[in-house]
Amino acid sequence: MINFIDANCMVGKRMHSLEGVPQTAEEMQAVMDRSGISHAIVYHCIALESDIVMGNGCLDEEIGTSNRFIKQWVVMPSFFEEFYQPAQLLEKMKQNHVSSVRMMPHTHGYSTKPYSIGKLMDAFAECNVPVFITMNQLSFDDLYALGTNYPAVKFVICEPGYRGARQYAPILENCKNIYLETSNYCHHNGIKDVCRTFGAERLIFGSGMPNGSATAATSIVRYSDISEEEKMAIASGNILKLLEEVSL
């Protein structure tokens, strides 16, 4: 049976909790068990909805001693001491066993142009830290610019949506450092088409929990019309490779 590592998960009780929706680490582990997901890369909802530093700090408390969660921090460029400078950030990540980061430029109100995040990207490139961004934070032109402006940084684009295949194709073709997370890349035969055209190595499994469904997201990979090797690469192999390259 294929084992999955979930590369796109947000933990923590939100203010507007929804009945039946898994949000805590414990609730998510139950869904992971049912879906065949061994591990999940997680960030904390407070880092999205309120304060980055506070949210990142809440991760340890949320996931407790479970070894099934891989910590991810939300980051931003800092010009007024509201967040760490790049060198300090890398050091803090190392101390806290954080191996990937997530940026939310639209939510947190900054540009992804080099004048804004250039130093941050240089730091991540030096240590091979993969950068995750949800597609609702970017335009397609922004995404192309990210891929070309920072060719040494690996970007995992989360929740790419089922309507964007015509937009993603030229970006995947031109930017080898861009990967698509699969949670809602689910138009008919979309996964198969990416595998055939660009290779399975460009896809990384994610559930999008709590907004997405892990049972649905795993199912689309399991049933896709691709080889078992390709399924295993998407399910866990590709993200493991990215994480193994990190050198903090």
Binding site: C186, H187, A217
Partner: peptide, 18 residues
Amino acid sequence: DLAFYDCRHTIGKIGLAQ
């Protein structure tokens, strides 16, 4: 919603539901 959408997604949502 096939073929607007991939039915493989919904199969898992029901098949693995509690």
